[in-house]
Design a protein around this nucleic acid. Structure first.
Length: 474
RNA sequence: GCUCCUAUGGUCUAGUGGUUAGGACGCGGCCCUUUCAAGGCUAAAACCCGGGUUCGAGUCCCGGUAGGAGCACCA
């Protein structure tokens, strides 16, 4: 039975990278008919954003990623919030202390050599407290110093297999005696993730590549406890197109931000899945359910991938076009201007669906329906349609009574009547259509042609706009 | 600084010793057409560098270079 987990810390929003990690973990579990677990990693008391857990629920829900077990969905392996598991960590810390794989450290933060500031890492530095006798420790305790618990890293080298990166070997001298239990009684990620993953029977650990070099430390912990290691799937990072890292602070959008920017959740999920993975054939359009089928963790890439808004936009367009008319209409509705009344909005949706790449395009696409923009007469001149000011004047003048007499007002009837007129008058269809479309839209381009716009605007408004066009033509 | 990882067009990628190096986004052109889209066709554009191994390397090995990550009482 596969069991994977998504273990975010509650920061208040879903990073793009987190979304992909959650997605992959979900896909790996689903396609094996396994379980996908949500666990909240809130062991940093300084970094707890209230309401942030709710943001995680919302994000996953928006993405369509359903978890089988989580804080609000007990599966018998809870609690699923680390701050509620403190006694468990204390118990296992004691065990590892007893077995000698960890020790109390009474050093204060300032006592530590400043490794990074100087740029000089002290090779093989070992904490002085690792060799403290029981007696010495007792004295420190008596002095009221609250210790941390540190892992005792043994000599040697550590090797493990990762499904993405293959075999990784690291010399233990590169690993330091990391803190397992902080002085506030909370575990560090380094300890909690191992204890929880084991206790929650996680079989596959999917996480960012930043954990690759510390994985040996976790493996040593598994060994110290006599537990089996999980399988590892470390993911390359998603970066910006300019090569920098994606950061909320630098203005890069979160998953929720992207949705607000007009991208469909399913398009974002699809796009993000493709950042570092491909199906092995040339498909690119995937709905979540298709991803479950197609995903293969052995096809995950090793190198970082840049997030391209251009490609996301294209894929978003693909997803918009794949929506059924009703589905698109529901997405589009909130983007229609208030002033857009008296129109068959469903028909309008049908007109713009194929032309919408991003939902935020919509107001700009439909604005002229609500109000005819100002435009100059020379907009009637269009070489390709063989439309001139003179031809436009002739067409609009002739078309006014034809429209006025037309009883059946729809795209087909309008097109038929205009085509007949064009033939009779010796015009190309385009020469007739261009001035009408221009008069109706006041724009160089519009979603839909002359007859589609006329059908939607209705007879009265159509006649009004054509008259207005005629005025401009003098 | 030390360690680990990575390296195919601008970007996402296919490729597991023999290919005209394939696809997608974007960009240009053409077709279609009731403007614009959509759709179809098409062009330009890539194997980081240097050594090996081999009859033959984008593919294997070594060394550079470049980029990323880690080295917290953060996750």
């Amino acid at each position: 039975m596969f069991r994977t987990r998504f273990a975010p810390s509650p920061t208040g929003y879903m990073h793009i990278g987190n979304l992909r990690t959650a997605l992959y973990a979900y896909l790996i579990a689903r396609q094996a008919d396994g379980k996908f677990i949500l666990r909240i990693e809130d062991t940093d008391q300084n970094r707890n954003v209230p309401e942030a857990v709710q943001a995680i629920y919302n994000g996953l829900k928006l993405a369509g990623i359903e978890y089988d077990e989580g804080p609000d969905k007990d599966g018998g392996f809870g609690p699923y919030v680390q701050s509620q598991r403190l006694p468990i960590y204390a118990e296992y810390a004691q065990k590892i202390l007893d077995s000698g794989h960890a020790y109390y450290c009474f050093c204060q933060k300032e006592d530590k050599p400043a490794l990074e500031e100087t740029g000089e890492r002290v090779q093989g530095y070992r904490d002085p407290c690792r060799s403290l006798s029981e007696e010495e420790a007792r004295v420190k305790f008596a002095q009221g110093i609250v210790p941390v618990v540190r892992q005792r890293i043994p000599e040697g080298t550590s090797t493990f297999y990762d499904h993405v990166y293959g075999e990784i070997t690291i010399d233990n001298s590169q690993l330091d005696d990391q803190v397992l239990l902080k002085s506030d009684g909370f575990p560090t990620y380094n300890f909690a993730n191992v204890v929880d993953d084991h206790l929650m029977a996680i079989t596959h650990v999917i996480r960012g590549q930043e954990y690759l070099t510390s994985t040996p430390k976790y493996n040593l912990l598994y060994e110290a406890f006599g537990w089996n290691r999980p399988e590892y799937i470390h993911l390359p990072h998603i970066i910006r197109e300019d090569g920098g890292k994606l950061s909320k602070r630098a203005g890069d959008p979160s998953f929720e931000d992207l949705v607000r920017m007009g991208y469909l959740p399913q398009a974002i999920v699809n796009y993000v899945a493709l950042l570092g993975w491909n199906p092995g054939d040339e498909r690119e359009f995937f709905l979540l359910a298709d991803l479950v089928e197609a995903f293969d963790m052995n096809r995950i890439n090793k190198s970082n991938a840049a997030f391209s808004f251009d490609k996301l936009r294209w894929l978003n367009g693909e997803h918009i076009r794949a929506l059924d008319p009703e589905g698109f209409h529901n997405f589009a509705l909130p983007y229609y201007p208030q002033s857009l009344t008296g129109f068959d909005l469903r028909q309008l949706s049908a007109l713009i669906q194929i032309r919408t790449e991003n939902l935020t395009d919509i107001p700009g696409l439909v604005g002229f329906f609500a109000e005819l923009p100002e435009y100059e007469a020379d907009l009637f001149v269009h070489q390709k349609s063989k439309s001139t000011l003179e031809s436009s004047r002739m067409v609009l003048e002739a078309v006014l009574p034809i429209f006025d007499a037309l009883d059946e007002w729809n795209n087909e009837s309008l097109f038929a009547v205009l085509k007949t007129f064009a033939n009779k008058a010796g015009f190309k269809v385009g020469t007739v259509m261009w001035p009408i479309r221009t008069a109706l839209s006041g724009q160089e381009t519009s979603p839909g042609g002359a007859t589609e716009l006329a059908a939607l605007l209705g007879k009265e408004e159509t006649l009004r706009r054509i008259s207005l066009g005629l005025e401009k033509l003098g």
